[in-house]
Amino acid sequence: MPSPPLPHAAEVLASQPLTRRGVARAVGGSLLFWSLVTLALAVSAAVDQQRAGRVVTVLEMLARFWPTTLPQMGFTALIALVLQAHPEVLERPRRVLAVAAVGVPLYLLIATPLVVLIQMAQQGQPLARFPEALGQWPAINVWIDAISSSGALAAQLGWAYWRQTQRQQQLMLQTQADNLRLRLTLLQGQLEPHFLFNTLNSIAALVRGAERTVALQAISRLSDLLRYALRASQQRWVSVADELRFVDDYVALQRLRFGDALRWDARVEGPDWARWACPPLLLQPLVENAVRYGLEAAEPGEHADLSLVVRPEGRTLVLWLSNPRPAEAQLMRGHGLGLAKTRERLQVLYGDRARIETEASSQRFELCLRLPLEDLDAALDAVAGPEPERG
């Protein structure tokens, strides 16, 4: 199933409109950054003054420098607010360059007179001297302001691009997870009708053979199977023990149809399988495939020895299943569907951590399932997710 296209950068950032919190973050971040820069300058200037024999404290230098950074604070905050309100500029690099080419000179035209006025006010100079003070303003100060404002713009753009990348990655991961969940649901939905269809065929075979009493028992067994299948299909995880009981019930139903021709040897070793998680309706399709492969494709009167071994190997469940492989047998339509879909489900759920290996000889067909063991309670908690916060 193809993944839906990821949203563009503008769409990603536009999904977070400008809010009071965003305004507070932009203004507060600008205030904090430039206050720290000003503090560093104040410390450096105070040390230089003290080396020159003047008694000047850091607070005095901070009080002198901090007001002159107000234009920079406003410029930095304005950039952050514009990028939040108009994220579409990030999609057009030429527009970003144009904004920078116009924004920085415009800022200098506004900020330079403001800084001159601030310093005149600090020194107690009359407003009438403003033209003279502005004309005597050192060009190096303008260049410093140009560099610092350009750096502020570059930093804000870098932060915005980084946020865009993070959001896109999160959306990509969420989209992939949604696609996997949908794919898993479809796979599980395909297995359930397949199981029901084959089981009803088994009961129909009993009815055609005039074994109505046995057919009634089979219908009762089918009721139990469907009750579990319905409950399990609504869950993401069940226990391994539940799945093994479901397999036993399914085999018991097939024995009603095949009688002594079905020879079933099951050995379950290891711990309490009720505490370990397993995808619902995972094991039965494998056993169903073995029954149909070993008996339905065999010649009339032949019997089939099927064996199942379940054991742990460290933190891995190992299931070994073996059934006869009749020579020159023609498989009925639908054989192998459960095996193929089970492989696909394992890939969706576990990736390379789970696998099915098969080996076919002239007489036997053998299957080995390796499944990582995960705690059932933890798996169910992960599906449920954290409780929503209550404000």
Rank of each mutant, 00 (worst) to 15 (best):
L114C: 10
W137Y: 12
W137P: 12
V104L: 01
N141V: 07
L97R: 14
P93E: 07
Q84I: 04
V115S: 01
R129Q: 15
Q122G: 06
P71T: 00
Q136Y: 00
A121R: 10
L114A: 13
R129M: 08
T68I: 10
P93H: 05
V82H: 02
M73V: 00
A98N: 12
P87I: 14
P138N: 10
Y107I: 07
L108R: 01
A133T: 10
I110N: 04
A80Y: 09
T69H: 00
T76W: 01
R129N: 14
R92W: 09
Q72R: 01
P93T: 13
L97N: 04
R94I: 09
N141T: 10
A111R: 06
V82N: 00
E132R: 14
V99E: 11
T76C: 03
A85N: 08
L78F: 02
L117V: 09
L117G: 12
A111T: 01
E91G: 13
I140W: 04
G124L: 15
A77I: 08
L109T: 15
Q125N: 15
M120I: 05
L78D: 07
Q123G: 10
L117Y: 14
L97Y: 13
V82Q: 08
F130P: 11
I118S: 05
P138I: 05
Q84Y: 03
L108I: 03
A111D: 01
A128G: 10
M73T: 02
Q125G: 11
A139M: 06
L97P: 06
R94L: 10
E88D: 14
I140S: 11
P87N: 06
P105N: 14
H86C: 08
Q122M: 04
H86M: 10
L127K: 11
R95D: 13
V104Y: 03
L106S: 05
I140G: 13
T69E: 02
V89R: 00
W137V: 08
V96Y: 03
V116K: 01
L106A: 11
V104E: 07
